[in-house]
């Protein structure tokens, strides 16, 4: 949702004039060209677009995993581009949650320890009630003491979602979080994410290629050639598919 008209304080994440280029001269790729975007609090947003349009790059920059060349990114009142690496790391620990497509969990420790990892890295105690709520909601109660390799792909993704929610971050980012799952397990994870927005007020930004996955979101942002080219409110599989088809032309 490119609601630049809305008051800024309502935004969980806002970016202005973001640019990012890879390579030099002949190999030069402009992955992001002057992107202006903001994401409202407590909304579930999907970012879509053709392959190579810059979705992942945008997400990585917004999440403080990668640095944009210029512009500004505001999360929790701070401009990410002005932070040192340590401050950025603390930001990721406390204000940002992640769910990746694969390889989400540290293999040496149990599901529970994985869920608690960002908090324990920060040396903080977790809120027991909130922990139970999240575990309950994700149906992980009986899997907590398993190592990641003893969990199915869907369970692993759910553990990742639980980890992302536990810190009650400003925003949770997902890069094709259901990309490796079958449609039923994918649906489970997606509805969990939607529920967390609805019931817990969690802001979620997700990159996806799948119109079905996008239909779980409150709105869809469309990207092409490194810029935002449109959005769809209350998306359905049909509207998303149509919009993507028109982008491809």
């Amino acid at each position: 949702m490119t609601s630049e008209t809305l008051p800024k304080t309502e935004d969980a994440v806002a970016a202005r004039g973001l640019t990012k280029t890879y390579g030099h001269d002949s190999t030069r790729v402009e992955a992001l060209r002057d992107v202006n975007v903001s994401f409202e609090r407590s909304r579930f947003t999907a970012i879509m677009g053709p392959s190579g349009s810059g979705k992942s790059t945008l997400m990585h920059c917004l999440a403080g995993l990668d640095t944009a060349d210029s512009g500004e990114i505001i999360i929790g009142g701070k401009n990410l581009l002005e932070l040192s690496d340590d401050q950025l790391t603390e930001m990721r620990r406390e204000q940002i949650g992640f769910v990746f497509q694969s390889f989400n969990l540290v293999p040496t420790i149990t599901a529970k320890d994985n869920i608690l990892l960002p908090l324990s890295l920060a040396g903080k105690k977790h809120d027991r009630d909130w922990f139970n709520t999240v575990i309950q909601a994700l149906g992980l109660g009986d899997r907590l003491n398993h190592k990641p390799h003893e969990l199915s792909g869907g369970q692993q993704q759910r553990v990742a979602v639980a980890r992302a929610l536990l810190t009650r971050p400003e925003v949770v980012f997902g890069d094709e979080p259901t990309g490796n799952l079958d449609s039923r397990t994918g649906a489970e994870v997606l509805s969990l994410m939607r529920t967390s927005t609805r019931e817990m007020g969690q802001t979620i930004i997700m990159v996806t290629h799948d119109p079905v996955a996008a239909s779980y979101a409150d709105n869809v942002l469309l990207m092409k050639d490194g810029t935002i080219v449109g959005s769809i409110q209350e998306p359905t599989v049909a509207t998303v598919t149509e919009a993507l088809a028109s982008l491809a032309e």
Binding site: A63, L65, D85, D86, T89, E90, R92, R93, E94, F98, F100, F103, N104, L105, V106, P107, L117, P118, L121, A122, R163
Partner: peptide
Amino acid sequence: TRENSLLRALGLKKKQ
């Protein structure tokens, strides 16, 4: 490498 990057993403500082 991947695991260490994941830890970094989740909030492990360089020094840590």
